[in-house]
Design a binder for these strands. Structure first.
Lengths: 222, 222
DNA sequence: GGATCGTTTCGGCCGCGACCGAAGTGTTGG
DNA sequence: CCAACACTTCGGTCGCGGCCGAAACGATCC
């Protein structure tokens, strides 16, 4: 156990893992850039993470793509972030890409940032969703509302994962909606082309259609 | 985030945190013994963990009692263990206290070890409980069965935490039942005096009454 | 008050591991 | 083929942090 934790405990490796948090596969070079260390050093880190089965490797031509080994790794990283949030506040310089992340991003497979928290706030205020400390529920009204939006809750319910749970947002420091429901909402927003992934990383852009749709649907102040 | 992970990443500190996993408060001296390092070293570790708000401190006379700062820390440790299990197998010398732990122990607030897995197996085989990867359900038959045993599911359901979830057992490498249901079952077993805590640590003994009751109720092979 | 115990603070030793430069391996393209 | 590129391996430096001995601190007991 200490072994796994110390792997995550190195800043460079933590950056690498965070960069992979959205589930996509990145090349060793991209990860070196994300980690802020040289390619040689990164290579060593990746080898260690791979040996410990935290990341998967797939070779493609002269590139090597790395991705998280599974959702259990993502969950672990999330839980560590949650604990990190409860610690003493730390100085953090703000950058442009940070601002993008703060605005809207994916959190493994659901929406986070101002966007994610805004949607959660709306659904909670209208009592479409009730969130507790560890789990949550969708009310009847909420189910009707979401199905009207085109979110298929029956599929979400059939998948045997936590149906609805709060996920503490590390920028907003307030919960947004995770679990199968959160993933279903995110999927639907992608389908509607309301949001799009930026080229690299977890940041999202809101399309002009999305702006209109999100404001109407969730009463957001963007 | 790397900071928190690196705190857990030191073997001595990992031992300390594991020793606190059952939620009880232990003195600095006991933790030094559990960690296998000198009291001075332990004191330094405890100070770091306390600064990072991973553990709480309460002074009592000339003793200082430490405990986990909250369930979120326990959940983090659990998720790290889960990932550690998926890694390459490691050599582990077996000791007597290990055997006790393997047999029956608490996992934060529910039952684990052979006992926990045995109960889970029984409930699954009889289709009293259905376990998925991330969550689980109690069937109607299961609810009837548990309520006859004296487990109050309505209380468990009212608490807004994950109702029923699989928790991978690090000795048996198979799931046992966690969440509110797991906690309720454990509580009931304590009430019935079927199990008792050993003096220190998370290990449990099964009383003679417990032996009879558990075999009858869950069809265990103890 | 003095002896004892639990715990923390200080100081110094030592080893692990992160890091980069340079060189090596394997793939692509002209 | 050879140059360019992506990535890894090797070798050596360096600093952080875990560790313990000694000593200080604070509480308890007689």
């Amino acid at each position: 156990m200490a072994e796994v934790a110390s792997l995550v405990g190195d800043p460079a490796r933590a950056n690498i893992l965070c960069a992979l948090l959205d589930g996509r596969a990145l090349t060793a070079g991209e990860l070196a850039f994300a980690a802020g260390v040289s390619p040689q050093t990164t290579s060593g880190h990746l080898a260690k993470l791979h040996d410990a089965r935290l990341i998967d490797l797939c070779k493609q031509g002269r590139h090597r793509y790395y991705r998280l080994a599974g959702s259990h790794v993502g969950q672990m990283l999330e839980s560590i972030m949650t604990v990190a949030l409860t610690g003493p506040p730390r100085f953090q310089p703000r950058t442009k890409s940070d601002d993008q992340l703060r605005h809207a991003r994916t959190c493994y497979d659901h929406l986070a940032g101002e966007l994610g928290v805004g949607i959660a706030d709306c659904l909670i205020e209208r009592e479409h969703v009730i969130l507790g400390n560890e789990a949550g529920e969708v009310t009847e009204n909420g189910a009707a509302f979401l199905s009207k939006l085109g979110v298929d809750l029956s599929v979400a319910r059939a998948r045997r994962r936590v149906f609805c749970r709060p996920c503490v947002d590390w920028t907003e420091r307030r919960p947004h909606i995770g679990g199968a429901v959160g993933a279903a909402i995110a999927t639907r927003c992608f389908e509607l082309k309301w949001i799009e992934r930026l080229r690299d990383g977890r940041a999202l852009t809101i399309t002009s259609n999305g702006r209109r749709g999100l404001i109407e649907t969730f009463d957001l102040a963007l």
